[in-house]
Design a protein around this nucleic acid. Structure first.
Length: 449
RNA sequence: GCGGGGAUGGCCCAGCCCGGUAAGGCGCUGGAUUGCUAAUCCAGUCCUCGAAAGAGGUCGGGGGUUCAAAUCCCCCUCCCCGCGCCA
């Protein structure tokens, strides 16, 4: 939510921001908000005058009674005040609710460095890393490949839980866990505290993080309970310090959430839709930071470095784009996407998103920084995917696929997989005792050619 | 699931039976005093409206009774303890 002060003092800033985002549909919302705010303040003043009168008379009645005198006249004088107050209260409450609803729907102010643009196509690439190799042989689709290697079972996943769910088996199951564990260790080295959050949240906690409209569309609800499965660990991490005051000396708080995420809305476009790329359930390591306002832009770059460092460690080529004004999410002031190279799709595709939400989330969550009794200021919040395992595994299955249908495990992950260096090697017909060394070498040579 | 106890300002806690200005402590901030520190004393410490003076609100949430509700009545939520069930 935006600062009410901006609405009152500089509404043109909000209007320009909406125009920059190409969100002109919400301009009437802004006008209404300005009007409701003015009417609300007038109403509050009228209401306070009435309440003041009531309080004065009530005090007089109290004094008369305690002095043992007759208060009948005063009581009659006060008799019709409650109805008037009630009526005005109702009106003021309505105005306030309308105002808040409108405010919640106005997007965050974009940072000045966000390029103007309408759609995804206008996002600007800021850098690339690694060689986006074109395969020398026809890559198998990752789903087909994984099924063939016996490390994923989509059919049984569908049968048991529906489309969008899968059984990961053997080395792919281990790869998922290896990514999580490597990801967590990677961030712990950089000062993050690992957090295993609740995988469900109450509605009231959830409303601090997302809009009401999101519930129906993307979130799973536990039947008969006021609980929703988390769509990203950003949500429980953000809600963690709701209504709290964080010690300013202990900021920034760097949290590293490792959790399973559940999303109803997964769409169905692009190649290999039947696969791991879009799932109803996947695992993720998330960076989440609460910091002081003046340091959030530095932290934003820090989080970006972390994600890029992670993909470099895996040796997966990527590029970074800055989202244009029209493509930047409502709560973010600025967002970088990290797009990994997917050779089969012959494209860079989003695998992570890094947003500085400035004070927009914090205002709604009411998370402040300060000293108890001292001055308090809203914190800034930032979140950045370190790794969403499902998508990252697709990138691994595509980038490190060999001609023989096995897949190299990135070196840094091998210690987390009991030394397994290649997925599928064990599933293939056992080579003769003397053969393995030569066989591997020849495979490699062929691939290089 | 059953029984019991709770929710009051940043924290602790009184007030509730019996309606009439939410007391006190801790912490923190500022000031006074002071070789330093400590102690002591004074003021402040939540939200809203207001340029200010000031006013209003706030006792888990929502209704109700009343001139007046932390207090009485009704409904709901959450937390804690015990029992039950349980990895």
């Amino acid at each position: 939510m935006l600062d009410m002060k901006i609405l009152r003092e500089r509404p043109e800033v909000i209007r320009e921001n909406l125009e920059r985002r190409g969100d002109i549909d919400r301009l009437p919302l802004l006008e209404n908000a300005v009007r409701w705010d003015r009417e609300w303040r007038e109403g509050v003043q009228d209401l306070d005058r009435l309440r003041h009168r009531r309080n004065v008379i009530t005090g007089e009645i109290r004094d008369l009674k305690s002095a043992g005198q007759d208060a009948g006249a005063k009581i009659r004088e006060a008799a019709d005040l409650p109805a008037q107050i009630k009526a005005l209260e109702t009106r003021v409450d309505e105005l306030q609710r309308s105002l808040r609803d409108a405010m919640l729907r106005l997007p965050n102010l974009l940072h000045e460095s966000v390029p103007k643009g309408a759609t995804e196509a206008d996002n600007i690439e800021v850098r690339r890393w690694g060689r986006a190799a074109v395969p020398r042989f026809e890559l198998k689709g990752h789903g087909e490949l994984a099924e063939g290697l016996g490390v994923a079972d989509f059919e049984r996943g569908r049968r048991a839980a529906g489309a969008g769910f899968v059984y990961l088996l053997g080395d792919l199951a281990r790869l998922d866990m290896a990514l999580l564990r490597f990801g967590v260790d990677f961030l712990v080295k950089r000062g993050f505290t690992p957090v295993l959050p609740p995988f469900v949240l109450r509605r009231s906690a959830y409303e601090g993080m997302v809009d009401l409209t999101a519930f129906r569309d993307v979130m799973y609800k536990v039947e008969g309970e006021d609980l929703y499965l988390i769509a990203t660990s950003e949500h429980p991490l953000g809600a963690m310090y709701m209504d709290e005051i964080l010690d300013v000396d202990r900021l920034p708080v760097r949290l590293c959430g490792a959790a399973t995420q559940f999303r109803k809305e997964i769409g169905a476009h692009g190649v290999d839709t039947k696969g791991l790329f879009r799932m109803h359930q996947f695992d993720k390591v998330e960076q989440f930071v609460f910091c002081r306002p003046e340091e959030s832009w530095a932290v934003h770059e820090e989080l970006q470095k972390n994600s890029e460092g992670f993909y470099r460690a895996l040796r997966i080529p990527y590029r970074v784009v800055i989202l244009c004004s029209g493509d930047t999410g409502k709560v973010a002031a600025k967002t970088y996407d990290l797009e990994a190279w997917f050779p089969r799709q012959n494209a860079y595709r989003e695998v992570g998103s890094n947003s500085n939400c400035t004070d927009y989330q914090a205002r709604r969550l009411n998370i402040r920084a300060g000293k108890i009794g001292g001055e308090k200021v809203l914190v800034h919040t930032l979140n950045n995917t370190l790794v969403a395992t499902s998508r990252c595994m697709v990138a691994i299955l595509e980038n490190f696929q060999r001609r023989d249908g096995t897949v190299d495990v990135p070196r840094v992950l091998r210690p987390y997989m009991g030394g397994v260096s290649r997925i599928g090697a064990a599933a293939r017909p056992k080579p003769k005792r003397k053969a393995p060394a030569r066989r591997r070498a020849s495979t490699r040579t062929r691939q290089r050619r």
